[in-house]
Write a protein that binds this DNA or RNA. Structure first.
Lengths: 144, 144
DNA sequence: TGACAAAGTTAGCTATGACTAACTCTGTGG
DNA sequence: CCACAGAGTTAGTCATAGCTAACTTTGTCA
């Protein structure tokens, strides 16, 4: 490999690490909006205490994060009231859920048991590119 | 679903989120030791400046993280000298590389192009359980 | 109707992991 | 043999994301 293409390769990989780090910052938001959407569907409202229980964190942590979601215009909240999603938040929630299900289904198709597949999909889903999602859909025979 | 199994389900999912968060804390360490191992193999030594270039961060950031690796007994370093892995660090590096390659190969087998597969594997590899890795090996016909 | 439990909030702490800027050390080429 | 460029380090800042402890608000039921 030439000197210049070696440098290019190094830069390409660096960009990739940067992409992964960026994905991390969106993960939390995706997990929250998906859960908020679920809770509203299941119980009619999304409360701090329920998010805390389901995420395995304290109410204080949920509060902090919800404030970030509000700042990013993914959610709305009034003091002492339950949390709602903005249209932007809803669309992110649905996109996240679909992606989660696709990843889980691929894992199951590869022979992973359902519970493990669901658990692993939670970590994996945030790092799957559009191209890979398309390949997954094709693999499962769900159109391109 | 009964009340008690609903609660169990909630606890199970909370544990899973906690597991994913814990995985995040090991990701950085895994990326570093893998790169350090690569650099030593390729160039004979692992320098701060090369790690910084390849990870897309500054030298200061690399320094901080290397100190954490030393604290966790994954690496050793003397001031103004290059970085080495402890046996524990080497074993983590090799485990990480194998896992990365396995994930990449599965993605390629599913029809993802090589460059995308390698890029996505970087984010995904840290969230794949033993069970799923075993299923991947079986899927690729590489023994159980 | 008001006490109190449950829910929500706030304040203040920790660690990680990123940054810049300013510094020191190393080692090599003139 | 030493100047200086390049490498490494340190100090100080910021945001995220977690925690506990202490507080306030809400809403229910005796």
């Amino acid at each position: 490999m030439s000197q210049s293409s070696l440098k290019q390769e190094i830069r390409r990989r660096a960009k990739n690490f940067q992409r992964v780090r960026a994905a991390h910052q969106t993960e939390v938001a995706e997990d929250y909006v998906e859960l908020i959407d679920d809770l509203i569907a299941e119980t009619g409202e999304a409360r701090v205490v329920d998010l805390a229980d389901r995420l395995g964190v304290t109410k204080a942590t949920v509060n902090n994060t919800v404030q970030r979601l509000v700042r990013e215009e993914l959610a709305t909240s009034q003091p002492y009231r339950s949390i709602f999603l903005t249209p932007k938040g809803q669309s992110l929630a649905r996109k996240s859920r679909k992606r989660h299900e696709l990843v889980r289904d691929v894992l199951v198709a590869l022979g992973v048991d359902e519970e493990t597949a669901d658990a692993d999909a939670e970590g994996i889903e945030h790092h799957v590119s559009k191209e890979t999602l398309a390949a997954f859909r094709k693999f499962l025979g769900r159109g391109e």
